[in-house]
Nucleic acid binder design. Structure first.
Lengths: 255, 255
DNA sequence: CGGCAAATTGATTTCAGTCAAATTTCGTGG
DNA sequence: CCACGAAATTTGACTGAAATCAATTTGCCG
């Protein structure tokens, strides 16, 4: 099934507006006040450089289910997630879907080696992003090689993650896939300074299935199986308690 | 099953020696004479810059089955394939293997965002590569931003390819996987200026299976099925004639 | 030519998918 | 705050595509 698309983009574009989520940083110099900058490709920039970035960036706010862009669309912007959670996916003509990744604060999306986006992107929960017009960002990269270096580092990291995911998709069992997925979510949460153990799982079983190459039913059954084996506990509000991280790690590695 | 590893590395390291395969370019300035430079990350470099590269590069020659490096090893070098075919793969502790990619002339490998290689690399057929000490290459990238830009472009391209492969691994049937694989090989050959239609398939059925998330037997059966449907013909010396590219494309896209 | 690894083919099993039916959760409005 | 209805999740029964186990057969290299 194709995703239902709103007849018009209901994302709200704010002219400016700092990307602060938690406390602190009130007004002035949005990028300078960005609480997740250390996670993004803006990390290596100084005050002067950040002012340039501030001038080309727009803030975007998305609600659950809002599309950001679709595969095949002209790739005019690059985005950096400042808060929330996004999913990026590819579709086959008959509706089969593969979720390529879940993105959280600090992650970027929209880097296309072609002139069009290679995947679609959609918000899972309420999210905020910084929008960079591609041409202007490229000019900035030209000017600030440290930013380009950082982007290369982040792309290399993503590539390594994609390769790990290929191992998962091609060679792991359903049980191993789910264990790997929960540990990955925890690890990623920790990197963002969030709680890694009762881990937040904001996406649906269906999304998890489309990420792991499984069906909703198999995801559900596998969660049940892990729960019955006392390896995890399902908490309210889409949180999962990893009761035996060591055992989960063993399972994830195929032992 | 674990790959058999030679007790010592039988790759032969040549002190210098131009990476020319076909005709032309005899001696002097190896990198200036490189026949595949336009495909590599050296593409944007001028004569002056190429001389710097020549000074830090070593040529490596590998025979079928020779390992280049193993996952987990300290990532001291980055390589560029100048001729031949390599496979890069990840293993699970019990020996299950996922081939992450097949590399041909122009492709690079060894870019690690960590301090160690995230995968193992091995020659499929007789191959030659350029070896760049990581530290020295990084210094060069610092100095020549155009090279870094090119590398970012190549990494973006690889990332897009990895995402396409995730779609294949997670959501395509065996038949669709094989059709996609053959078309990909043809397309890649064309990019290198080689013949795309009777396409050269230098890797074993087992390697193909480990790349597509299938077993040897399923790969073999699917080839047979496509052959019986007159979509392909199996020629000697590991070549495959794509008899009906349009139909294969339909299958690959899931129709 | 002979030996051996690779590839193919066949028989059977199994893990995850499909189809179907509860059951739970959650958002909304009274 | 609670009740309702829709959507998401879970559970169950059964199916099927690819895996596994097991022979052949092919073809390559010495």
């Amino acid at each position: 099934m194709h995703q239902t698309l709103s007849p018009f983009d209901i994302s709200r574009i704010r002219g400016l507006a700092p990307a602060q989520e938690r406390a602190g940083a009130e007004k002035e110099s949005p990028c300078g006040a960005c609480s997740v900058r250390h996670l993004t490709f803006c990390a290596p920039l100084g005050e002067e450089e950040l002012n340039h970035v501030t001038r080309i960036v727009q803030n975007v706010e998305l609600h659950p289910g809002d599309p950001l862009f679709d595969e095949g669309e002209e790739a005019t912007n690059i985005y950096s997630v400042t808060a929330g959670a996004m999913k990026v996916y590819k579709l086959l003509p008959d509706g089969r879907r593969q979720i390529i990744g879940f993105l959280f604060s600090g992650d970027f999306l929209g880097l296309a080696d072609d002139e069009v986006y290679a995947y679609s992107a959609e918000a899972i929960i309420h999210s905020t992003l910084c929008r960079f017009p591609r041409r202007k960002l490229e000019a900035l990269l030209e000017r600030y090689p440290r930013m380009e270096r950082r982007l290369l580092g982040m792309a290399s990291h993503e590539l390594a993650a994609a390769q790990e995911q290929m191992l998962l998709l091609g060679r792991k069992t359903a049980r191993e896939k789910i264990a790997s997925f929960l540990l990955l979510l925890g690890q990623r949460a920790a990197q963002r300074g969030q709680t890694a153990n009762p881990v937040s799982v904001p996406m649906s079983r269906n999304d998890i299935g489309d990420y792991l190459g499984l069906t909703t039913e198999t995801v559900s059954r596998t969660f049940t199986q892990l729960r019955q084996g006392k390896l995890i506990a399902l908490l309210p509000a889409g949180r999962v308690d990893l009761l035996d991280v060591e055992a989960l790690r063993e399972i994830a590695e195929g032992n």
